[in-house]
Nucleic acid binder design. Structure first.
Lengths: 120, 120
DNA sequence: AGTAATATATGACATAGCCATATATTACTG
DNA sequence: CAGTAATATATGGCTATGTCATATATTACT
């Protein structure tokens, strides 16, 4: 999960990734609880490697979301596995996710309008 | 151009805005040189008020873009007007803008894939 | 036994956005 | 003509947060 920003393109990627992080995490645990490492890998896989989370960003972000009451974590210990902390959406988190999805859509449309990509 | 973030929705907006700022500015001066204040107002107007730039963010960002050689500013003084610094895209900036438009599109598609908004 | 992968954790540093404020000029309004 | 608003650029200080580097612990593989 190491980052590597070499070109100008990557500078943009790095910046853009910041704000969408919450939305990604909330979406991924919408249907089932997941642990941090799983979330990080899913984001990388499903984005075709375009989006990657540094673990040093991912875990603190999970703590913040839990502190805000949007997600709730619990430790799960199974034989033959290292202990994992599974996070699930709280009722408050569900509301926030719904609001953020709308916000994301409006945001993308606003940007596209300004940069001339209505058809994107 | 003052900011006001009250709801959770706005927290997301604030974060999201960060990475797209460069793309917005480069796009707006693509066809004609513009000064900072004009750019700030255009972003607010064309986004229907959704995107707003604090001047304390806008001007330093313009300096950074100029320092990187993507934009070039020059002072213009006209009678009956306060002096303005007009920025234009450099050849290097044009290349960066083209790359960032592609990057933006890929980014949006990757996010949508993960959060379940393919149809958005 | 050694290495890689899995999984979580955190201190230190750097980036960069925002608040508040400042300055200067022009336009409007009572 | 005095006061206020709008235009236009500028910046010090605070804060949030992402990244680098590193640490720890467990399991799987060879």
């Amino acid at each position: 999960m190491a980052m590597s920003y070499i070109t100008e393109k990557h500078i943009l990627d790095r910046e853009l990734k910041k704000g969408s992080a919450e939305l990604l995490i909330l979406s991924l645990i919408e249907d089932q609880p997941r642990h941090g490492y799983d979330i990080g890998n899913l984001i990388e896989q499903r984005s075709g490697g375009l989006l990657r989370f540094n673990v040093a960003s991912l875990y603190p972000l999970l703590y913040r979301l839990e502190k805000r009451g949007w997600i709730q974590g619990r430790w799960v210990e199974k034989p033959g596995q290292r202990r994992r902390r599974y996070y699930r959406l709280t009722p408050e988190g569900k509301k926030v996710l719904a609001a953020q999805r709308i916000s994301w859509r409006e945001f993308v449309e606003a940007i596209n309008r300004i940069i001339g990509m209505e058809h994107a």
